[in-house]
């Protein structure tokens, strides 16, 4: 039963949002042509010379390109794995708690870092990880040599992943906790009557109950393997750790705004967008097919 009068109002409601999207998302998209140009500011995008795939060829010839793609994938994958495992374990532990007040306090505390910006958290981290910082004080108390975490290519990725987990794990437990509450309590009762101990209940009821959620999250995170965390890395890195920590987004930012290689920057950015788009399309269709999940 379509109601045409209603539909007109639906269009009207969508109008402001769509206009804003056109203005601030679609119009700038035409700037992608810079990737195929020898862009000259005085000529603008309409009169600059077209150079075809030259910027892309230059990109593939640069030794840095391989490095930033590899770094991006490694950092992002590590973040995805730890970003799923840690909250999963934490949610299981939290699920075992009966004391409601304790549960709420723990949740409140661990959600908090999610709401802090990377600027703030990086400021805190830089302090903490300095030689005089609390982490190295503890390392020294335990008899270790102080470590320059942010200037070491062997530690830097670890710092990125650990601090990302710190910021997000609490928040990511929410989805597991929701799934846990969705498990039928009668299953536990029945298992208890059958004499299953706590560990067996975990193995035979809880984990299977969470499996669809895990698969779903894993599938959806496929779309993120090229997002290694721009704001975090921009605020934490320095030239010494480019080797292990420079990612596509930070490279594009530097090439475009600091080294003034607009064509190259746009080309790298475009490649990333396209690959990401494909990955997300694949992951969403997988999710729709196997988990019967539709996000929109």
């Amino acid at each position: 039963m379509r109601n045409w009068a209603f539909i007109r109002h639906y269009h009207l409601m969508l109008l402001p949002g769509i206009v804003l999207l056109l203005l601030f998302s679609v119009v700038p998209m035409f700037g992608i042509v810079i990737a195929f140009q020898d862009f000259q500011p005085t000529l603008g995008i309409f009169r600059s010379q077209w150079v075809g795939w030259e910027n892309f060829e230059y990109m593939f010839a640069l030794p840095d390109s391989r490095l930033i793609f590899v770094n991006t994938m490694i950092i992002a994958s590590l973040k995805i794995v730890f970003g799923m495992v840690v909250p999963f374990v934490f949610a299981l532990l939290l699920h075992e708690v009966i004391h409601l007040k304790f549960k709420r306090i723990v949740q409140t505390v661990v959600y908090l870092p999610h709401f802090m910006s990377w600027v703030i958290l990086s400021g805190i981290l830089i302090n903490m990880l300095s030689l005089e910082g609390i982490v190295n004080q503890i390392v020294q108390l335990l008899g270790g040599e102080p470590i320059l975490f942010l200037q070491s290519n062997s530690w830097f990725r670890g710092v990125l992943v650990a601090s990302d987990v710190w910021k997000e794990f609490g928040f990511n437990t929410i989805i597991y906790i929701a799934a846990l509450t969705g498990i039928n309590p009668h299953l536990y009762e029945a298992a208890a009557i059958d004499g299953a101990n706590r560990f067996q209940r975990l193995i035979y009821i809880t984990i299977p109950g969470l499996l669809p959620t895990i698969i779903l999250l894993a599938t959806l995170s496929l779309g993120n393997v090229l997002n290694a965390g721009f704001e975090q890395i921009l605020n934490l890195y320095n030239p010494i750790v480019y080797q292990s920590g420079d990612i596509i987004d930070t490279y594009v930012y530097r090439a475009g705004l600091q080294e003034v290689q607009y064509g190259l920057a746009t080309a790298v950015g475009l490649l990333k967008s396209v690959v990401s788009f494909l990955l997300i399309a694949v992951s969403y269709s997988l999710a729709a097919r196997f988990a019967n999940y539709r996000i929109f």
Binding site: P41, Q258, V260
Partner: peptide, 12 residues
Amino acid sequence: YNQKVTLAIVSN
């Protein structure tokens, strides 16, 4: 500051 200059140049 250099970013501002770059952006000013690139946008002509």
